[in-house]
Deep mutational scan, measured.
Amino acid sequence: TIDEIIKALEQAVKDNKPIQVGNYTVTSADEAEKLAKKLKKEY
């Protein structure tokens, strides 16, 4: 679900690790936030 994706992003940001979500690779908190907002609009 979208919530699980967002939790995974938040965890990756805390661990400061890049995370791959679908076609996106998120490497920073800023990118994670942008991706989360984008995904919320889509779903």
Score class of each variant (00 low, 15 high):
residue 1 T to Q: 08
residue 1 T to I: 09
residue 1 T to L: 10
residue 1 T to V: 06
residue 1 T to R: 11
residue 1 T to M: 11
residue 1 T to S: 11
residue 2 I to Q: 01
residue 2 I to F: 12
residue 2 I to R: 04
residue 2 I to L: 11
residue 3 D to Q: 14
residue 4 E to C: 14
residue 4 E to T: 06
residue 4 E to G: 05
residue 5 I to M: 08
residue 5 I to Y: 04
residue 6 I to V: 06
residue 7 K to L: 09
residue 7 K to Y: 06
residue 9 L to D: 02
residue 9 L to C: 00
residue 10 E to I: 11
residue 11 Q to I: 05
residue 11 Q to A: 08
residue 11 Q to S: 08
residue 12 A to Y: 14
residue 12 A to F: 15
residue 12 A to V: 11
residue 14 K to L: 09
residue 14 K to M: 09
residue 14 K to I: 13
residue 15 D to W: 03
residue 16 N to S: 05
residue 17 K to H: 09
residue 17 K to W: 15
residue 18 P to V: 08
residue 18 P to E: 04
residue 18 P to F: 07
residue 19 I to C: 13
residue 19 I to R: 04
residue 19 I to M: 09
residue 19 I to P: 01
residue 20 Q to S: 13
residue 20 Q to L: 09
residue 20 Q to T: 15
residue 20 Q to A: 10
residue 20 Q to Y: 06
residue 20 Q to G: 04
residue 21 V to T: 03
residue 21 V to A: 02
residue 21 V to L: 14
residue 21 V to G: 04
residue 21 V to H: 02
residue 22 G to S: 02
residue 23 N to E: 15
residue 23 N to F: 03
residue 23 N to V: 05
residue 23 N to M: 07
residue 24 Y to F: 14
residue 25 T to S: 09
residue 26 V to G: 04
residue 27 T to S: 14
residue 27 T to Y: 10
residue 27 T to C: 15
residue 28 S to L: 03
residue 28 S to V: 02
residue 28 S to T: 14
residue 29 A to Y: 05
residue 29 A to T: 07
residue 29 A to R: 06
residue 29 A to E: 05
residue 29 A to H: 03
residue 30 D to T: 08
residue 30 D to F: 11
residue 30 D to E: 15
residue 30 D to C: 12
residue 31 E to T: 03
residue 31 E to R: 00
residue 31 E to G: 02
residue 31 E to D: 09
residue 32 A to W: 05
residue 32 A to V: 05
residue 32 A to Q: 01
residue 32 A to L: 10
residue 33 E to L: 15
residue 33 E to F: 06
residue 34 K to H: 10
residue 34 K to T: 11
residue 35 L to S: 00
residue 35 L to Q: 00
residue 35 L to F: 00
residue 35 L to W: 03
residue 35 L to V: 04
residue 35 L to R: 00
residue 36 A to S: 06
residue 36 A to F: 06
residue 37 K to Y: 00
residue 38 K to W: 12
residue 38 K to R: 13
residue 38 K to I: 11
residue 38 K to H: 12
residue 38 K to T: 07
residue 39 L to P: 03
residue 39 L to R: 00
residue 39 L to H: 00
residue 39 L to G: 01
residue 40 K to P: 01
residue 40 K to Q: 09
residue 41 K to S: 14
residue 41 K to R: 10
residue 42 E to M: 14
residue 42 E to Q: 12
residue 42 E to H: 06
residue 43 Y to M: 14
residue 43 Y to A: 13
